[in-house]
């Protein structure tokens, strides 16, 4: 860990200014400090935003809920409103990390979680995400945990988190404050980026911008599942995960929203999938079609080839369960 100047801003605006000038925001710190010890992250200034508020869950006027950026993962997952009305979010959060980490990790911080790519985390290895232009070591290296969707030769890293995958399925909105009291909202499905030619950028945050919260639209009900596949049964990142919100009416799917984790540089959402499901009667043919849509451009890089059949099979498991089809 390199030396840094520790700052505790007196409010959001101050935090945004410090961030704009190159400071790194620290909330829970469970990912940032991990990476600072490895010198993957080397901020000159550490901006501790833990005491600036943003730690409440509040109902919104349209029946949704606003989760403050500094609400811890534990508090969010345990909140009675989230458990009752947006259970896929509770389940996704609870499937991640450990009790200890969830107590520290925050809503905003978790959205900014960086990849677990072995080469990203090892500063002695070339990595375009860490040092643009040095190359992607994972492409021809150990890439069992890497992306099969939306990747390119610049970077095949995945976004590793769970919480955001559920938020994609729930069509959440990220609220962002900028310097000079500017603020904007970004659909979460547009918040994270694919690597493109700038794999160093995980998301659309600009310098000086701070996530202030995440808003969930009014509850849609239905069956809400989060399915996380991993060889270790807990305290492990997903090989593949699926967040599903499915509502059935009279034997047909009246609402469908699916998002996929650990398959791409961002949680994956394909509107064609939701459209294909909505209004349809559940059938294996339909589920196959969903898998086809999901995987139509999937590409493995060797060790991660298995994610393609794994995702296909997991889609079927989740949709059968969510629609009440027999297993």
């Amino acid at each position: 860990m390199r030396p840094f100047d520790y700052q505790r801003p007196d409010g959001l605006d101050h935090a945004a200014l410090l961030e704009r000038d190159g400071g790194a925001l620290i909330a829970g710190g469970t990912n940032l400090l991990d990476l600072m010890k490895l010198q993957v992250e080397t901020p000159d200034t550490l901006v501790d935003i833990n005491r600036i508020g943003l730690d409440e869950l509040e109902p919104t006027d349209d029946g949704g809920i606003r989760i403050g950026a500094l609400v811890s993962n534990s508090v969010c997952a345990a909140d009675p409103r989230i458990r009752a009305d947006w259970p896929v979010l509770s389940r996704a959060i609870l499937s991640g990390a450990s009790g200890q980490l969830r107590n520290k990790a925050t809503t905003g911080g978790n959205l900014c979680q960086r990849t677990r790519c072995y080469y990203f985390m090892n500063i002695d290895m070339p990595c375009n995400k860490r040092e643009p232009g040095t190359g992607c070591s994972a492409l021809n290296g150990r890439n069992r945990i890497h992306a099969v969707l939306g990747a390119n030769e610049n970077c095949i890293a995945t976004y590793p988190g769970d919480m955001a995958v559920a938020m994609y399925a729930l069509d959440a909105t990220v609220e962002i404050a900028g310097p000079d009291k500017a603020s904007r909202s970004v659909k979460i499905r547009d918040f994270h980026r694919l690597p493109g030619d700038m794999p160093q950028r995980d998301n659309v945050l600009e310098p000086g911008e701070v996530i202030t919260g995440v808003t969930l639209p009014a509850p849609v009900g239905g069956t809400q599942l989060y399915r996380k596949v991993r060889e270790r049964s807990s305290y492990a990142f997903a090989l593949v995960s699926i967040a599903a919100v499915i509502r059935m009416e009279e034997g047909a799917i009246s609402h469908a929203s699916l998002a996929f984790g650990s398959m791409a540089h961002k949680p994956w959402h394909d509107p064609r999938i939701d459209a294909a499901l909505t209004g349809a009667k559940p059938s294996d043919a339909l589920f196959d079609k969903v898998a086809d849509l999901l995987l139509e451009n999937a590409e493995g890089y060797g060790e991660n080839d298995f994610k393609i059949p794994l995702a296909r099979r997991t889609v079927k498991a989740v949709l059968r369960e969510a629609t009440g089809a027999s297993t």
Partner: peptide, 20 residues
Amino acid sequence: RDGHLANCDLAEYHVPVNRD
């Protein structure tokens, strides 16, 4: 390519956890 150990920590080299 170089014989280095890629999964060199307890997050990526999995030992059983309680739930296993």
